[in-house]
Every structure is written in structure tokens, then in C-alpha cells.
Design a protein around this nucleic acid. Structure first.
Lengths: 254, 254
DNA sequence: ACGCTTATGTAAGGTAGCCCACAGTATCTG
DNA sequence: CAGATACTGTGGGCTACCTTACATAAGCGT
């Protein structure tokens, strides 16, 4: 079965390749077989740089990432963009459509190419309305997204560039289950709301301490433990929540 | 009918004073009479400084503010707190309990004393499960909260202290429908992730331009239009969304 | 009235990070 | 292979902001 490439306009209805319990996406994996069947999942590829959501554009599908990573950004009036969220195999993109929003407010686009599944918004709405495990999982993920952005808002107000860069690298590696990614310093500094010259200096420090290595648009993480020491606590807070929120019947540990 | 003071432990079941369509709280006001009746609303007073939610503590009630303002903060390991959200008469506090979370992750506490209604979590969960207008309103508000925090995360990464202070003052005035509030410079600078000395200088500038006046822990806004010019766009983005999200069947304008 | 606490003004010194500019080099393109 | 483009290093000047410290004054309790 061919995976649908996101950029194509044709979208024949295909059955998902995997069955309940065999998905790489954590949410799909936690869903029962009936829910999987009803969602009409559809394999997709996420190509580097592709816009999954775009401001003002209708949200037509939910996306479940299996491999790769996507960023959500806010665009300011002067055109600058700052990252406000990261999606990976523990995420579902487009849940705001389930909260009554029709058009996206932020840009979401592929940072690390990969693949996953799509699901038509209307199908997802119907499944959500059933009030079963899909609703529970979707709401749990919304809460997880909220926790992440809240922590990020505090982090951006408080922590310095070095801490935030280390945090970003670690979260990116976790989301994409991958220690190497194509990403120029220029680009990444912008995501963090900073500048290339600041980035260059900090990256050089990390490189000199063998925490990372990089060359012409490719970053490779060498020492996660070392980076954790340089990162702010926000990394642990976010990752701990994401790792655990599904294990406790949708709540955090008692 | 006596309003229940939040700090009391006794909470006799009382009927709300107002009926559907007569509430000052925007969400309650949008709810149908049946929903209002089923929610078992209970008048409460919010006393200055009172903790409405606290990290790790069970969320027992949802709160609908009618007057006053509450802040949500993140607490870092070093004990410092930064504001990550503001609640007022267009808000409901505790929706994360509807998303499957049992215990609060952040502190939410009264910044400007006021009053409102409480609703037991289990009652709210039952009403939510009905899938009617309460569910629609609650989900819409979750989305609104997400929009706000997302904007804040970007704002904190990009905009300078002066812009953010002006934004904060304007949003506070909107949330509380009130241009005067008790709040020391020291305290407010901390909320914004900055320091008192920075705050003192910026506040003096605003004062000199007759945008605000203040004395010993009381701030008074004199010129909103003037402050808007000093604030970043984040103020408008957030307020526009809050003002409009309920008018379009839960979605943003088509 | 007296001291205590709290709120604010102010100032010096230090630093992180911004802006700008230029240089070197790797990759890509025709 | 020549030129164009993209990625990174580096340096200088500048500013916002932090840290610390001290001074003043208003409110508060006794």
C-alpha cells in the first residue's frame, strides 16, 4: 500500500496498514480496535517543510505522527516566527478542531520528515462525540499540550538561551526518537526567539564539550545526560508529563 | 442568600441567585437554563490572595468568576513564580479536570478580590458527558486558554519588558472590568519574570506620560489607548479571540 | 509617638544578548 | 568549473536588563 504524500490533492480512501495496538503513534496505540476502524485512518508522509496547518486555513484532517517531528509557530506582525510547540509520535495534530475551532490559528509544519496517519475532521468529531476512549485520549492530549505550552511560557520568561537550547535539543530528540536532524543554526535560533550570533556561540560551547556536533545544517546529539545538566527543568517537567499522562486513566499519578 | 466564602469548609447546597441569561460570567450567561440548573452552582467569594488551585492538590470544584481576577502561575524549582494565565469573568477555572486531570499542576489564586460561582467537579463531568452546550462551551474555553498561553509563550520569547507590562495592564483591566488594582511593583515584576528595578523605571515612564498612576501598592490605569500603543500585538490577539470565540458557534469567524 | 514593615526611587557595575558587518567554506546549479 | 547560495565563525559596539545596595517615605501596630 502506498502512503499518501501530503502534498498530493488526490486522497483515495485506504485502510491503515497497522491494527490497534501495533501503531508507533502512542495515541493510536492506546485506542481500541473499534475506534481505529471508525477513524478511517489514512497513511501519509510528512515531507520536510510541509505546512500541516496554516493560519486562517480550514483544518480538514487530524494527523497522527509515527515518525518525524513537526513544530507549531506563532507569527508576529513583523513576520518573525517563534516556536510554541513540538509534535511527535506521542502527539496528535489538529485537536483544536475538536474544540470547535474551524480554522487554524498557528502554523504547524514538518521539521523532521516522517510518516503517520490522517483522519478527516468530521470523522474525528463523530468519534469524539461518542464519548469513548477516543474522546478520553484526545482530551488527555489537549491537556498535555496545555501543560507543555504553559511550561514554555514560563521558560521563555525566565531561562537563558543556553538552557533553552539544551531543552529544545532534548525535546526534539525525544519527539522524533532520533538524535540527528537537519536544522541550520540560523533557523533554530529563530525558533527560540534569538539570533544566529548568539546561537553560534552557544552551539560552539556545546560542541567543544562534546555534547553535540554539527556541520552545515545537520545537528547530532552526542551526550543527552550532559545536555540535561545544561537544560532547565522545563525539559523534565514536559517529558515526564507526556510519558505518564496516559498511564493513569487520563490523570496524573495519584 | 449568603455567598459562600472560599475559605470556609462548610458548603451547604444553595441555589444560584441568578438564572440563565442573567449571569455576569460570560460562559454561564451563554448556558441554557437546564444546564444552569444541573450544574448546582454555588455562590462564592474570592478573597485576595486565596489559592483556588494549588499544585498537586485535588481539583474539587470548577469556578466561574463574575468579578475580580485570578492568575495562574508556574513555580520553578528555585521557588520563583511566573504568571502563565489570567482569569476573569470570561473564564472558567478548572477545566483541566474535565480533560481527565485529577490534580492541579499550577497555582491559581485571586489577584483582585471578587465573587462568582463554584460547581463540583463530578457534577461538571456529568454535564460535560451529556455532550450539550456545556461541553461545547467548556471545550471552546479550553481552546481559548490554549490560544492565550501560546501567544504568551511567543510574547515572552520576543517582546521586551515595556511591551509586556503594557500588555499585562490592559489584559488585567479587561479581565477584571476595573482600572484600579492593588498590586505592588515588586510583585508584578515577578509575575512578568523580571525585576523590581526594571519595573520601577518602566512604571515611572508610564506615569510620566500619564498612562498610569500608582502609589504604594495600588495601580490605576489612566489611558488605555496610550497603553495599547506601548503594548505588543499580543494584547489584541488575545482579547479579540476571547471576545469573539463564543459568537461563532464555538469557532472563529468563517 | 515610636519603631517596624512595606513600597518605591535611584544608582553603579556587570553581563547576556542584540545588531551589523565581514570573512571563510561547503553545497548546489547550470 | 565558475558562480551563486547557504551555513557558520567572529568581532565590535550597543542596549536592555540584572544584581546589589542604599535611601526615602508611607502605612501599620503597639
Amino acid at each position: 500500500m502506498e502512503a499518501q504524500v501530503l502534498k498530493s490533492t488526490v486522497s483515495p480512501v485506504l485502510r491503515p496498514a497497522a491494527h490497534a495496538g501495533t501503531f508507533k503513534n502512542a495515541l493510536l496505540n492506546a485506542l481500541d480496535a473499534g475506534g481505529i476502524a471508525r477513524l478511517q485512518l489514512h497513511p501519509v508522509k510528512f515531507e520536510l517543510g510541509h505546512d500541516i496547518e496554516y493560519p486562517e486555513r480550514l483544518i480538514e484532517n487530524l494527523y497522527f505522527i509515527e515518525d518525524g517531528m513537526a513544530s507549531m509557530t506563532t507569527t508576529f506582525q513583523d513576520g518573525s516566527q517563534v516556536e510554541v510547540g513540538m509534535f511527535g509520535y506521542k502527539s496528535v495534530i489538529g485537536v483544536s478542531a475538536l474544540m470547535g475551532t474551524k480554522r487554524s490559528l498557528n502554523r504547524v509544519y514538518t521539521q523532521i520528515a516522517g510518516s503517520g496517519y490522517s483522519c478527516p475532521v468530521e470523522t474525528a468529531r463523530r468519534e469524539f462525540a461518542l464519548g469513548g476512549s477516543f474522546q478520553r485520549l484526545a482530551l488527555g492530549y489537549v491537556q498535555a499540550q496545555l501543560v507543555q505550552v504553559i511550561q514554555l511560557a514560563g521558560c521563555n520568561a525566565t531561562h537563558n538561551f543556553e538552557q533553552r537550547l539544551a531543552r529544545w535539543l532534548l525535546i526534539c530528540a525525544d519527539r522524533a526518537r532520533c538524535d540527528t536532524f537537519k536544522m541550520s543554526q540560523d533557523f533554530l535560533s529563530g525558533m527560540l526567539g534569538s539570533t544566529r550570533s548568539t546561537m553560534s556561540i552557544t552551539a560552539a560551547q556545546f560542541k567543544q564539550e562534546n555534547l553535540i556536533e554539527y556541520a552545515r545544517g545537520t545537528i547530532h546529539i552526542l551526550d543527552k545526560k550532559g545536555l540535561e545538566k545544561r537544560a532547565c527543568e522545563c525539559y523534565c517537567v514536559v517529558e515526564d508529563y507526556l510519558d505518564n499522562y496516559m498511564q493513569y486513566d487520563g490523570g496524573i499519578p495519584a
